[in-house]
Nucleic acid binder design. Structure first.
Lengths: 97, 97
DNA sequence: TGGCGACTTGGCCATATAGCCAATAGAGTG
DNA sequence: CACTCTATTGGCTATATGGCCAAGTCGCCA
């Protein structure tokens, strides 16, 4: 695996997070698991859209789901992604100087 | 500024980093400032493409440039973005489990 | 001032993304 | 089984992205 491949993979992970709706989802999940329904209401997009966001996060190993009855619960698998919030904030601060 | 606005802004920062070429650039700059020429060679894309990547990073307050003679040097303004590498790696590890 | 090297900007094209609506799938319940 | 509720998948469209080529800008030095 070349150095370049690693950057490509890391870029895909970042891309998976680089979306307003998905950040909202991650932020919510960081405070505990919850259902797709709750996330849908939070995000305010169509349920299908939210479902696709979740599928994408799952495909990247960022979240995990479990079905209980007819509800599906999602939870954060790699909480370290929340460091991104801190850094993104730092960058925003820097820009406004 | 609503909570949602903040997520939108943070998403834009992440997006600015979510690209293989730009990650290569950031990684290189993390080891010290350098010229556009060197970055162009490193990335292996057209000079114009690299220039646009740099403009984007600059617009987001991630890098800064200074001209010296007819060379332009770029340097990292917010080194914390390099934490992303660590976390992205963690996510990749998680996915491969 | 004319030319050259180093970057940047404008224009264009192919692909990827995020959204919605409609249709489908799964689990529980009458 | 029929029906409902929850979530996912398929299909479509509009917009954004990243790449290259060509043209323009900026500083230096004949």
């Amino acid at each position: 695996m070349t150095r370049r491949d690693i950057f490509a993979k890391q870029a895909r992970v970042l891309k998976a997070l680089a979306n307003e709706s998905r950040l909202m989802i991650v932020d919510r999940l960081n405070r505990g698991e919850c259902t797709v329904g709750e996330l849908t209401e939070l995000v305010g997009s169509d349920a299908s859209t939210v479902s696709k966001h979740l599928a994408l996060l799952r495909a990247h190993g960022i979240v995990e789901d479990r079905r209980q009855g007819n509800l599906v619960y999602y939870r954060l698998l790699t909480p370290c992604v929340c460091n991104f919030f801190t850094c993104a904030t730092q960058v925003l601060k820097e820009r406004s100087r």
